[in-house]
Every structure is written in C-alpha cells, then in structure tokens.
Design a protein around this nucleic acid. Sequence first.
RNA 1: GGGCGCAUAGCUCAGCGGAAGAGCACCGGCCUUACAAGCCGGGGGUCGUAGGUUCGAACCCUACUGCGCCCACCA
Length: 867
Amino acid sequence: MPAQRNRDLPPTWTPAEVEGALYEQWVAAGYFTAEAPSDRPSYSIVIPPPNVTGSLHVGHAFEHSLIDALIRRRRMQGYNTLWLPGMDHASIAVHALVEKQLKAEGTTRRELGREAFVDRVWQWKAEYGGQILDQMRRLGDSVDWTRERFTMDEGLSRAVRTQFKQLYDDGLIYRAERLVNWSPVLRSGLSDAEVDHKEVEGELISMRYGDGDTSIVVATTRVETMLGDTAVAVHPDDERYRHLVGTQITLPLTGRTIPIIADEHVDPEFGTGAVKVTPAHDPNDFEIGQRHGLPMPTIMDEQGRIANTGTEFDGMDRFEARAAVREALRAQDRIVAEKRPYLHSVGHSERSGEPIEPRLSLQWFVKVGPLAKMAGDAVRSGEVAISPPEMAKRYFDWVDNLHDWCISRQLWWGHRIPVWYGPDGEMVCLGPDEQPPAGWRQDEDVLDTWFSSGLWPFSTMGWPERTADLATFYPTSVLVTGYDILFFWVIRMMMFGLYAMDGVPPFHTIVLHGMVRDGNGKKMSKSAGNSVDPQEWLDRYGADALRFTLLRGANPGADVPISEEWVDGSRRFGTKLWNATRFALSNGATVDSPVPDDLTDADHWILDRTDQLVSEVDTAFDEFEYARLAEALYHFTWDEFCDWYVELAKVQLAEGGARADATRAVLGRVLETVLRLLHPLMPFVTERLWTTLTGQKTLVIAPWAAVSGRPADPAATERIEAVRKLVTEIRRFRSDQGLPPGRKVPAELTGADLAGHEAAVRALTRLDEPADGFAPTAALDVALPAGPVTVRLDISGVIDVAAERKRLAKDLAAAEKELAQCEAKLGNPNFVGKAPADVVAKITGRRDAARVEIDRITAQLAALPAS
RNA sequence: GGGCGCAUAGCUCAGCGGAAGAGCACCGGCCUUACAAGCCGGGGGUCGUAGGUUCGAACCCUACUGCGCCCACCA
C-alpha cells in the first residue's frame, strides 16, 4: 500500500498562506542553517541572506534571489552549502542603532564632543552586539549566527588586526601626508563616497602676481587660498613664460616670494596658462608640490577659518576671507578680470551640506602594487573567472591602475587603526593579542569599511585561526554581486584573500549582475519617488512572484527593470502552476510508477521536450543565465505543457484503460520535473505543489531533475507539430468566420493520414463527426508535411466570403513574399556557389513549399463564390 | 577629459552572420467542468543614421547622432 497522502489542493491559493507556513517549516527543519561538510565537494557563497522577505530594498531582494536560486539547485544536486550575510547589513544596523541611541539620550554627536562620543560608540558596540545580531536575524536569515562570525565582534576584530599587522610588518602599510576631503562643520575627513559634487555659481577671479616685467596673471575660484600659495606653475613648453621659469615673484598681501615653476600638468590653453599652486588645499596643487618639493603651509583650521598666515585675514571664516582677500587685491589694483557667476562643480559634504575643503593631514595607506598584481594575475591566468566575461575588461582597468589605497577614516565608528603612540612620539603596531604599554594612545582614525570587508571570505570562517570551516569553505565557489561594487569590494577581497591565504583567491567565479531599475529603466531613487520597498510587493504578490520577476529580468551584466505589473504577471504564473497541478491531481496523475513503453505521439513529444528543458536549464544555470532559464521554464510550462499537452491528455484520459494510465504517468512525470526545475526560482509554491503531488516530505533536498535517458522520437514530435498547425489553422478559420470557440460544428476531415490524431484535432477545435444529412458549407485546406488536409464544415449558413477572401489573400501574400525571397537567393550564382550546401538545400525546400502553397491558395480563392 | 556600455513592436527587453521574437499594452471573440488570476484568434517593427565587409548583416567593421554608467578633473 502506498503511503496515505492528502492529494487535495484548495481551488484557490494565496502566496502569503503558502509561504508563511513553509518558511517556518524550513527553518525548523534546519534548511537555512549552515551545514557541516559532507564527502561531497563543498560549495559556499559569501553574500547576504537568502530569502527575499528579509531584504532591505529591492536591490537586495534581487541579489538574494540570484544567490538563493544557485544554492537551492546545488542543494538539490547533493552539495552542502553555506551562505553568509554581507557587510552592508551590518553597517546599516550599526548606523541605525547608534542614531537611535543618541536620540533616546536626547543628545547629538556634536554636543557630546568627539572624545566622549568615540568612547561611547565603542562601548555601545560591545553592549549592543547581541541586539545587532538579532536585527541581522530579522533581516531574514537564519544562518547560524555566532559572535565569531559577526562584523563588529572580537572575531572580526582579530582578523582586522592580524591583517593590518601583517601588512604593516611587510612594509605594505605606510603613513603619509595627503589631502583629504574635510568637512569644516563635522570637523572630520570624509571619504570620496560621502562627497556630493554639485554645480554652483561661484566666481572666477583673475589676478596679477608680481610687478612690471615679471608679473603674471593667474585665476581662481577660491581667492582666499592664495594666502597658501607656494608657487606659480606654467607649462614647460609655453614660450610666453619660458623666461620667467626659475625666477621668484612676490605673492601679494603676504610679502612672501614664491618661485615660478614648469609642470606638465598645466594646460597652456586654459586661462592665461599660468596656475597658482596651493599644495595644502588643492589635490592637483598637492601633486605639483610633491613633484617640486614645495612647502605646504596649511592656512585653515579645522573649522575652515584662515589661520597661521600672519595676515589680517587670520581668524576669518573661509567665505568671509574670500571676499576680504578679493577686495584687498582690488585695492592694490591686482584684479584683472572677474567672471561672475562662474558655473563650476564643488564637492559638498553629503551629511552636513557645506562645501568640503581639501585639507592636509596624516593618513594611512596600503601599498597596492604587489597586491593588485596578484589580483590581476589570478584573473589573467584563468584561476578566477568573471561572468559575464566582458566585465573582465573593467576589472583589469581597475586593478592595473590602482593607486595606493587610503585606509584611514575620520569616522565615528569602525575598526580602529591598531597603532599606538607613546609619550615621546614612539609608534607601535600591535596584533590582536598584544597590549600597548600603559599610557600609550591608540590612533583615533578608523579603517575604511572596505578594509574589513575585504577580509570577509575568510574572516567569517574564523581566520586567523585555522578552523574546520576555513578548510572546508575557503576558497568559495561563486561570488554574486553587482557590477557597481566590483571596484570597492571585489578587488579588495581578491587582494586580501590572495595575500592572507597564501595565494589562494577567495572564489573561483565572480558573477556580476546589474542594478534594479524601475519599469521604465530609470534608476531608482528616493528623490524621484520611484524606489520600491519589496515588502509591499511581497505582501501583495508573494516572494515567489517577486523572485521570479527579478530572475526573469536578470540578463548577464545588464540592469533589471521591474514594475508592479510584471510582478503580478509572475503571480499569475504561480496560479497557472497551481491549477495545472490541480488538474493533474484530480485526474490521478502518478509519480511512483515508471512511464510505460506504450506511449502516444503526444506523450513522446512532451517527454522529449522535458528532457530538452532539463538540459537547457542546466546550461543556463551553469552560465548564470537566469533570464534565459526563467523564460524557458515559463514558456514550456505555459505554452507547451498547459496549452497543448494537458489538452491532448484530456483526450487520452477519456479513452480510459491502459492509455489513461500511461497518460497519468506522463502527466505526473512532466509536472513533477517542471516543479523541481522551478524550485530554485519559486521555492514556496513549488514546494507546496510538489509535496502534494508526490506525497514526499520536501522538495528542498529532493534530487535535481536529470534527463531521462529515453531515446528521443523526432517523428512523434513532427506529427504533433502537424497536429498543432492543423488545430491552429482550424481555429483561425473559425475565428475569422465568427464562430464562437465553444460552438460544436459538424465537420469532415479528409486528405493526409492524421496518424490517429483525428479525435484530438476534433476535440481541440470543437468539431463534431458529420451526422446524417451532413451538408458542408465551407472548407479549408491545410498543408502538412504528410500532405494537405481538407476540412469541410457545416457552419449552418453562408460563409463570410469577404472574411475568407481576406484570410486567404493574407496567406497568399505571405507565400508570395517567401517565394520571391527564396528565388532571389537561388537566382544568385554567388549564393549557390558560396553558401554552404545545407543552407542552399534549405532555401530550395522553402521555395518548393512556397510554390505548392501558392497554387493551393490560388485554387481556393478561385473556388470562392463571387461576393 | 579617460574608460565602458546601450540604441530591435506603444513600454521593458531577448536574439548577435543564413525565414524579425517574448512579456506587458492593444483589437476581436469566448464563463469550452484545471485555470476569467483564464481560453481562442488577430494587428503592430525598412532592428538609431550613413558608409563598408560578405553570396547573405539586426548581428562583423568605420564614422556620426542620442542616451546611460564608472573614474578623473574643473587653477
């Protein structure tokens, strides 16, 4: 006796019901837990959580869907998998908690003061670590979170310090003065990402330095910086200034003299061809200053006030000073020209809004040369593949031109730089288990978030300890992430992985997906009001529908547009599956017994197509072609299985006996296979349907679908294609003649042998057997490979001659166009001579078919009564 | 300024050397017992422009035009 099973499905369903119950079940069963290694090769993915429901925004949902699909397929293939949450979630959670805490205390960072605030942040990190973990869990993952695996915990801290010290000891970390983006309001440096460039209307002031023969005119949008000038630069080939190079000139207002130097950087075409050089307050000037060994006086304090110039401007705010300096120069008659407004782009602090000020300060750097070379070579050698391959070009552009990486940040949170300073200016870098001498102070800067992110593939596995996880899951197989993050994250992981893990790269394949766009292909942004909270769609359409939509749009490397109606379309697909399964169940579809040998053409055809589908899906998965596999599954399920096989199966089921039993077996087999193939893309609804259909416990760890090994039967497929063509032509005729699809019409089919498919054709086109007194009033011819078939129908009245003439005229035009095209090709001796023989044969065949078709239609038109 | 990419049906996108495709939208007809969250039928594109290569180009090459992204810069 087969196990008792409940083979009923409710006639209607809602995604929420199906998904809610299953999610709990899966969690309880441990399917979302990192699994122990087995004897199979391990497979791991370093990336955020797997279920769409926890996604912060639709971009996350997209990424999660891609990853989860890969993982589910691998699991069905018998591999153990591990996935890990991403860094971005951790930092988002910390931001949120810190802000919340501040608000609760009714204070702000500024009020608290920097020193006190930094202390508190570190304290909170310890205190709220658990809370952050909870929040991570709520973000949708039920990975077995442990403190050792969390960003802000001691484990990662150990990893960061170990890596820093190793790099430091190898001479790959150094400290140097550089310009940073300084926010006078926040009194902090900002990363480039925190700077918004905005077009503003400023002024361009041209002014004269020096006097008489040795005077030179320079221009600037920030006049006040002239107080910090230490040179004027011209292009070395510029004849106008050649005689001045190497001479000194007086810097107005300060009384200092500064040299005139020659530097390639200067564009002789721009302005006067002479540039003032303020090394401490402009990135280009800084580089010129470095090249020429110029002094670099800093002339502004932390709040953007002029300082240490020894002029009357000291103490003025920079904007106040801008006007004051301008007027002072005017008083000396040194202003040569003023352009106002002068439109140019100025960096602004993203958080506080004011223009940033480049400012000189001591920063920490990673010397990337040797690291970047390893990262480039790993891809060049083929050890690491990038998908789609076109993106490799972008990768090399980055990695081959990387400048030294500034890793110190003046932020409020993050991993502090593990360097301590002694009372007499000593400096020491300490590993995780080392303690600084009493009274030494730790560097207050924190590390760039990408420093710790770059450790992710191995720090999450317990590194620097040689853990079992590390041995099993490093290197990982596939990294899935957006192309926008290739530079920031992927390259860092490559460099650090190769460096820390003895030259073993952190993953074998890098899969880059696009960005999620709105339905019109526009970038989602809060200001445009087109950004999407996935939760809303999840509530309305379900996770399956959202995932399927996202995957269906995921063409390699290209962006993914998404709109609500497409998600709705995916939900309808879920409903289609639901109803198809209900049909199969109510007709007794079987999955336990093998498919019998005695099969109809329809059975052979759908089984062959199912095998093809399995191969197609496998290939698409292996090539990360999500859109292609979603499309293949959608069309097979809807257009072939539901629209044709199920309809043909109804005829076979009606026959009863062995025929019906065979049909039940085929129905069950095909549907069961499709559900397996669809599971990675629509996990919830397929789980529900598959378990009901098969009576088995879960689809999550069921074997992945494999091709049957049954020999294909192309002749059966050809006959079914003929049936489909005949049915479509009859339906078209009926539609053109205004016959309601449901109305039964007596008809007689003559001509080519229909190989036992006449009953099916009649059922699908609602044609009755001719009864006594059958008097056909209309006829149509359909050309099939086996020969023409004539259908005579009694449509109880006069046919619509005009409609029929129109229909035939259209077919005739198509056939004539086809004939003309083929004849043109075959009449071209170059084509016949140079094209491959099989192409010529194909065209010849098409020409002959077109000729037959034209004759047939012409005869039919002639036979029509005059209208 | 440097680099990369995209222009195909009303919209969003596949196809990337041998007959122009999908989803949605649109038009007409149907409640045909799995499904109206559905079924059947239909209309719609000189594949951005101009040259070139080829027997043959949406597909390869060149130029142009228009969009998008990344990086850099804006004295």
